[in-house]
Amino acid sequence: MSINQRTDMLLEAERLTCSIDGRPIINGVSLHLHPGSFLGIIGPNGSGKSTLLRMLCGLLQPEQGRLMLLSRPYSAYSAKERARIIGYVPQDCSIDADFTIEQIVTMGRHPYRSLFRSLSAADIQCAERAMRQCGIDALRDRYIHACSGGQRQLAFIAKALAQEPQLLLLDEPISALDIRHQLRTLSLLRQLAGKSFTVVASLHDLSLASRYCDRLLLLNDGRVEASGRPDEVLTTAALHAVYGIHAVIRKEPDTKGLSVIAFDHEESIANYNFNY
């Protein structure tokens, strides 16, 4: 690998391992992120999606392996420096503190403020832009505990965007949302990804993942089972190996995605009438 390629790389992870309470959760995962794409991490429950994301964000130290951010090791960054590069939206966004959406989004500016400096005009502008991007500027004065799950999710995405990161990590951003908010969130992420902005999200809905992501990473039992373009990763064989399901996968030319119809018994496919 030449030096030039390396400097292009946003994030490199080599053979990461991590175990929690002695149980291995991540077992030799390697991952290379180039700037400007939308990567979906898929895999069954307990396959290590959240743990991998938390390691990529620096919340969790890998036990072994190498983790580099913009060709420097993670340990070379302070918490604030890292927060200027990586934004993270945890799975659990249920907060019952007495803060308004505007206050929460503004907190995203923390990595840019010293202990003494108050909010600058640029800070305010940045928080405004993030709220507009997420379409929540009308809700700014609403208290976060009075918001619906979808609004909370958007608020925390806006907070992460106010950090002006180059990489946005989201842990199951749509699993608690209704279908309208799922689409809204994913198309927001889709629009954000590109040029120098990279999005990584763990997802459960395979059809939506194939439709919105550039690349997918299929995890199984802490290992990478497959990675690549959605149509390369989502194969009948891979889904059977990982999820133990029998799937019919079809290209959907209108959405440029795949539709995955899953059955738990092989016979069910034969009984299903696909000729509509």
Binding site: G58, L59, K80, E81, I95, A97, I104, M107, H110
Partner: peptide, 17 residues
């Protein structure tokens, strides 16, 4: 301000720097 972020939870706070 740090206390405000800590109120959101450890992961939120850590990820915000």
């Amino acid at each position: 301000r740090t206390l405000n972020l800590l109120l959101l939870g450890d992961e939120h706070a850590q990820a915000s720097g």
